[in-house]
Every structure is written in C-alpha cells, then in structure tokens.
Amino acid sequence: MNKVAAVPPSPLRAFWLKWRFHINVLLLLIPLGFMPKYFADAALFRGDTGIGERIVGDVQVGPWSLTLAEFRNEGPLPDPAGPMKFFNAALCDTCAKQVKATYLRIGKPRSLRAAGVIFFGTPYRMGAALPVPERTPADAELWVTMEGWDGSMHQGSIALSKASPATLAWLKERGAKP
C-alpha cells in the first residue's frame, strides 16, 4: 500500500481561504463610499439640483435677464486650450423666445465677432466653457452679450469677484501676471 503524505497549503492559499469572505465584502463596500458623489454629480448633470453648485445671481442684459451659476464652485480646470471655467445660465421665462444667442467673455467685447464663448443648450439650462487668461486682472468683469431674433444686441456685466470667487482665488494663487 502506498500512503501519500498530505501537503499543507501554501501560506497565500491559507490566507485566501480564511479571509476571502471579508475581502469580497470589502470590495463591495469600497465603491459604496463613492456613491453619494456619483448621485450628486448625476443630479447636477440632469438639472435636478438647479443649474449649478453656486448661483451667482441675475444679470440684467438690456430688456432681458438671465440667472448665472458656476457649474462647480472651484477654480478653472486645466485644458489643452488653457484653463477653463464652466458656467451655466437660465433665461427668464419672458425672454426665452426673444433671445437668439447668449455669449460670455472676460473683459468687454469689442464687437459681436469677439463676443466670447456661446452658451449651448436649452434656454432654461445653458452651459459654456469660458477660457480664463492667466493675465486676467483681479478687477475683471464677466460680460454677457445677448442677441435677439430681431437683430438687437444688448450687453451686461458682473464682477468676476462676485461671479466666481474661486476663480479669483485661483488667479491670486498663480500670481496674476500684468
């Protein structure tokens, strides 16, 4: 008769056999820790929580007005084209059918050709990615240009310090260049 000696399991296999249930539970619980942020982001993208994390306020542009909001209450994000700051806006109910296009820019535009970035989306939830030049002064203004279906153009402004304190802090941190 041949007797085969039992070989003890390797230390790694013994560890796995003893702790596999706990490791699997941990692998399920770790993603659950990120779920609140995931659902908050999903609600923000759907528009369930409003038009942004921080509502700037109403900006009067000629006879029209719009509610401006920072998409995220943070400084500009890096982008290959330069730092970008995201803003959302919603037109007033009465002017939604009268406005053809809405533009946003740092500094006063010289003409419609230099009006800035265009807002995209529905009149009640528009978005724009605004490039932030590194030479932006601390007293800069955000200019909103609106073009009506009748060809009229109106402009309004809001101080950058009021519209996005996080962007101003970001500029100070980077040492705004003259």
Rank of each mutant, 00 (worst) to 15 (best):
F71M: 10
F87C: 05
A42Q: 13
Y38W: 14
L104W: 06
G47E: 09
N73D: 15
P109W: 06
K85G: 04
L77P: 00
L104N: 04
L68N: 04
V61E: 07
A115S: 15
T67C: 08
K97N: 15
P80I: 05
G47Q: 00
V117W: 04
A96K: 15
V56I: 08
G75H: 00
G75Q: 01
Q98K: 15
K37I: 10
F34E: 11
P83S: 13
G116S: 11
P83A: 15
L104I: 15
I106F: 01
G75E: 02
D79L: 01
V99C: 06
G57E: 09
G62P: 03
K85C: 00
A115K: 06
I51C: 01
K85W: 01
L91F: 03
T67I: 12
R46I: 02
E53R: 04
F39Y: 15
R54Q: 12
G107D: 12
L91S: 07
K97A: 15
K100H: 14
G82W: 00
M35I: 12
S65F: 04
G57S: 08
D93C: 04
R72M: 10
G62D: 03
F71Q: 03
M84A: 05
F39I: 15
W64I: 05
T94R: 13
K97F: 11
N88I: 04
L112E: 15
W64G: 13
S65M: 09
A40F: 07
A69Q: 01
F71V: 10
R105C: 05
L44R: 14
A114K: 14
T102N: 00
R105E: 09
L44P: 00
S111D: 15
P109Q: 04
Y38H: 11
P76G: 11
A96F: 03
A40P: 02
T102G: 03
L66T: 01
N88C: 14
S65G: 11
N88G: 06
C92Y: 11
G82E: 07
L112Q: 13
Y103M: 09
P63V: 02
Q60P: 02
A40T: 11
G75R: 05
D48E: 13
D79G: 03
V99S: 03
D58E: 10
V61P: 00
R105V: 10
R72V: 09
Y38R: 09
R46Q: 14
